[in-house]
Design a protein around this nucleic acid. Structure first.
Lengths: 247, 247
DNA sequence: CGACCAATTTGGTCAGACCAATATGGTCAG
DNA sequence: CTGACCATATTGGTCTGACCAAATTGGTCG
């Protein structure tokens, strides 16, 4: 599996060490020369690594030394790596994710309905129908249709910021959430709300649609948390030193 | 003003050229050697530049050439630079920003109220009071109190994702929006909704609070757009080639 | 006209060097 | 003994020039 470049490897290692909390925020990282010695490579490679980590928002590089930043100053991109490490409780983080996704999707549907033409309303309606139908199949089908709906909505309201945030979130969680949590039990998690959504869309009622989406995501979250709570009795309280340092 | 490193300078120049659309998505950037010749520097510096741009999500670097990515694949961080360039209509983007911030804050208040102790309810109440009072002063005071409220809410619900997204958005817009748009006319933009928010908080009614926040931001957006529409009669339709390439 | 192959270009890596800004530790005055 | 101060060592910032492997490119051959 040497398909990744050396810089990528070293970046991954250092990123992991930092996110694991092996260096406290404010602390100095070993010098570039020391790092190049440790990883048996040249300083140029280390500099590229450092540049990437700097862009991730987890270190600050300045003459005199590279310093580790607190997690709160990081970029969204660290989420995927945090999940990968299991450094944050997955169910908790996934719950938070559903909250944020719900708020985003809610805004998306409200904005889209405010601008949508009749044809577009038609399109949306079809996708939501597909969504309801997908709930009788496997979860990946549901997931796919949600993405489809999301894309459709974004193409209507054309909110660049919303798109970038959604992109970022999706990129961080793809492959993380989907594979791990695919229990068959989470069937019809409130197709009731989806039906309400459907009606709201046909009425061009953005507020009602937004509300239905919020409630749908809340239901999903509740079911999911209940599920993981039972099947994962106890998980070690890893690295609360990092996830708990918000005042 | 030579306080920035050479790498920073070159990064800024190339970033600007790419975001301006001087290279179409998929197109190849000049080779690292050519770039180092053009900027009269060594290849190592260019490599660091390229690494940073790669992390920004606007280029993909691979053997054979560096390629420019479509804007939709970029990271949130590009927003600040886009604003800086004026490549996207500022009023439009700021409107989108208010939408997203509204959805975020709405979620934030709902989540916080679901967890808040009586003491924390008290704290929130005080801040919202300060917020209403600040509306009689200058805008920067309002802005400050909003940040204070946001911090307070995050410290209660402890949603890491929400925090990172909010951080990212705020970082992109600090200094961009605040200085430019500070018209005194946007006074009491719906302190009505703020009073509703206050009552909802005291009733521990998360849904009502979330709704009030949403409506408050919608009002702000409406007033702001009406304002800029009159005082900025016509702005050239710059770079629609980039902002319009979402299907 | 299309498939294939070789030469060129490109990114990936490497070694060693000098400069300017910072951090460090020791010294000296109070 | 404590604090300010200064020289030195350390650190990041920049530079040069070179070799390798993979991708691109353009020409050639079927």
């Amino acid at each position: 599996m040497a398909t990744v470049s050396k810089v990528e490897e070293i970046t991954a290692i250092l990123r992991t060490e930092i996110l694991r909390g092996q260096y406290r925020p404010g602390e100095r990282l070993p010098s570039e020369r020391d790092l190049s010695a440790r990883f048996e490579t040249n300083r140029g490679a280390i500099r590229e690594v450092v540049k990437k980590l700097e862009q991730l928002g987890i270190i600050a590089v300045a003459p005199g030394g590279v310093r580790v930043l607190p997690l709160e100053e990081a970029t969204l991109e660290v989420l995927g790596y945090l999940l990968e490490l299991g450094e944050v409780h997955r169910p908790e983080l996934i719950g938070q994710m559903l909250d944020v996704l719900g708020a985003m999707t809610s805004l998306s549907i409200r904005s889209a309905l405010a601008k949508a033409t009749d044809n577009e309303i038609e399109d949306i309606t079809l996708i939501v129908h597909a969504l309801i139908a997908a709930h009788d199949k496997d979860d990946s089908a549901v997931h796919e249709v949600w993405i489809q709906l999301s894309e459709k909505l974004i193409s209507i309201h054309r909110n660049l910021i919303l798109r970038l945030v959604a992109n970022g979130l999706r990129a961080q969680f793809i492959g993380q959430v989907q594979t791990e949590i695919e229990p068959e039990k989470i069937r019809n998690p409130g197709s009731q709300h989806l039906i309400e959504l459907l009606h709201a869309i046909q009425d061009h009622n953005g507020e009602a649609a937004a509300s239905a989406v919020i409630r749908h995501f809340q239901t999903m979250k509740r079911e999911l948390l209940a599920l993981t709570a039972t099947q994962t009795p106890s998980q070690p309280e890893l690295s609360q030193n990092r996830s708990a340092d918000y005042a």
